[in-house]
């Protein structure tokens, strides 16, 4: 069993499927995330596929601030994703609310609602930084399970 689990985890990190959700972002971060998918940056060479369905996704990329209306959508998407799941928050807004932190309809960063694994700073971060964040997230996708496995074996 353990062997199979480890095998699956290895494969998961080889081809992670990614879901992008835009909370109240200004679009700056979104288009940089989309730019990652296009020929110049081309994250598909890492096996990363952009899907629209939370039930298929391993990675959740979120950009922008959480507000009172979209926090339910965000929590919903997160709960629909199968575990293990990794959340990557993109941009100053996703980290803390950024330039909008004092606005009345802003709750704050993504981590006010769901747990975040990787923070990518910048306004907006460059595609290279986003790819870096995703790769960091992939490491986390693999690591805890392996540790669990070892402990049980021992």
């Amino acid at each position: 069993m353990q062997g199979i689990k480890r095998f699956i985890n290895q494969l998961r990190a080889k081809s992670p499927w990614l879901l992008h959700f835009d909370c109240g972002s200004c679009n700056g971060c979104d288009i940089e995330i989309l730019a990652c998918l296009t020929p110049v940056y081309d994250v598909e060479r890492f096996g990363i596929i952009h899907v629209g369905n939370p039930f298929h996704a391993d990675l959740l990329l979120t950009s922008g601030t959480v507000n009172h209306r979209n926090k339910k959508v965000l929590a919903n998407l997160y709960s629909q994703m199968p575990s293990p799941k990794i959340v990557v928050a993109i941009g100053a807004c996703g980290l803390s609310g950024g330039i909008f932190r004092e606005a009345y309809n802003v709750v704050g960063g993504i981590d006010k609602v769901i747990p975040v694994d990787v923070y990518v700073p910048g306004c907006p971060p460059k595609p290279e930084a986003i790819i870096d964040g995703v790769v960091l997230g992939l490491g986390k996708l693999q690591a805890p399970q392996e540790r669990n496995g070892e402990r049980k074996e021992a």
Partner: peptide
């Protein structure tokens, strides 16, 4: 309302130079 932040109201606390950075992020 999923992206509403209310940034017109930020004009109350940012001065008119700082508002340039805010309106860029509309």
């Amino acid at each position: 309302g999923y992206v509403h932040r209310g940034l017109e109201r930020l004009a109350d606390i940012r001065d008119f130079h700082q508002m340039i950075q805010v309106v860029e992020r509309v």
